[in-house]
């Protein structure tokens, strides 16, 4: 236990009941997972789902979830890198938003300092237009953006996040100048959606799940998904199917502390490997509506490096990073 208790810990009981269930197999590991966001968000949910699956399947004796809120996860990252160095029992949840936040916040600690373990999930984003919009297809929207990029007003999540990146890559693929896109970031789930429903913007980007009920009720028209493949249960084509070579997913991953030994890394990878194969994990993915995108080892390390380069490129293009 570290004496640096500048830890921001707000732990919720959600999932504790499940966490207390006795394991079937012999559990040796005592893990600590840091969720670099407050209770209730996606990273917190990922950390607590891991806690449920790991203890439920008896892969770990105990799993403690710590929330460190703030600054797109970069505060949690910095604290993790400083306090967990060489500790083979700690994991940190992260995702594409953190990659962007590190650059826009000029965070002192980057993702090059952690030990990659595995990507867990990858949720597709969706591009939507209001019901009354003249744009019927992705091609209509692409043509509009080519003609006058500023006149296509995008609504989405925080500046430099996955939504923003998709809007920029879409403009690029449409043959427009991505530095001229008119992207309006909104905070909080409801506000961007309200701007869409009120017809104040041309198009919107968000996780498919957040817009799903509006799409199904017909108030928003989904033009395309950003994932490589279609989503089961959704009648929305992908961008690639429609001739736009763009792929952005909202991925979530776990990484381990800096300077851990090869054995420690292997042990952590093995436990996550086993976790994603448990019925508990499958159940959680289904309940949360998350798409499985498991990738571990060198494959994930290469993916992480590639994403960091790509995000940095895009943010430079749209002018958020100089």
């Amino acid at each position: 236990m570290s004496f640096r208790t500048s830890v921001r810990r707000v732990a919720l009981a959600a999932g504790l009941a499940l966490a207390a269930m006795p394991g079937a197999a012999l559990a040796q590991m005592e893990l600590k997972i840091t969720a670099p966001a407050g209770p209730g968000g996606g990273w917190d949910a990922a950390a607590r789902s891991m806690q449920q699956a790991l203890t439920g399947a008896g892969l770990a004796r105990s799993v403690q979830v710590t929330n460190v809120t703030g600054a797109g996860g970069t505060i949690g990252l910095a604290q993790f890198v400083n306090t967990a160095r060489g500790d083979g029992s700690q994991l940190l949840v992260n995702g594409i938003t953190m990659v962007g936040a590190i650059l826009t916040n000029k965070a002192p600690v980057g993702l090059d300092r952690v030990t990659p373990i595995a990507r867990l999930t990858a949720d597709p984003l969706v591009i939507v237009v209001p019901k009354a919009s003249p744009h019927q297809t992705v091609q209509d929207l692409a043509a509009a953006i080519r003609a006058e990029p500023g006149k296509v007003v995008w609504a989405g999540g925080s500046a430099g996040g996955a939504d923003h990146i998709l809007a920029a890559l879409f403009a690029q693929a449409a043959g427009a100048d991505a530095s001229k896109i008119n992207y309006i970031p909104f905070s909080g789930g409801g506000e961007a959606l309200a701007a869409m429903l009120g017809g104040h913007v041309t198009a919107g980007v968000s996780g498919y799940g957040e817009f799903e009920s509006q799409i199904k009720s017909g108030r928003l028209r989904a033009l395309a998904l950003s994932s490589p493949e279609r989503l089961a249960g959704a009648e929305v084509p992908t961008l690639k199917e429609q001739g736009m070579n763009v792929e952005v997913v909202n991925w979530r991953a776990v990484v381990a502390a800096p300077d851990i030994s090869a054995e420690q890394k292997q042990a952590l990878t093995a436990v996550v490997d086993k976790m994603v194969k448990t019925p508990q994990w499958t159940e959680i993915l289904k309940a949360r509506g998350w798409s499985d995108a498991y990738l571990s080892g060198d494959g994930f390390a290469a993916f992480l490096t590639a994403e960091r380069e790509r995000v940095a490129d895009v943010l430079r293009t749209v002018g958020l990073v100089k």
Partner: peptide
């Protein structure tokens, strides 16, 4: 953080001030 451009204002490198 300035919500529209994502850059920080008046934080003087203190991470707790970023939000």
């Amino acid at each position: 953080i300035d919500s529209l451009t994502g850059q920080t204002r008046l934080t003087f490198g203190v991470p707790e001030l970023v939000d």
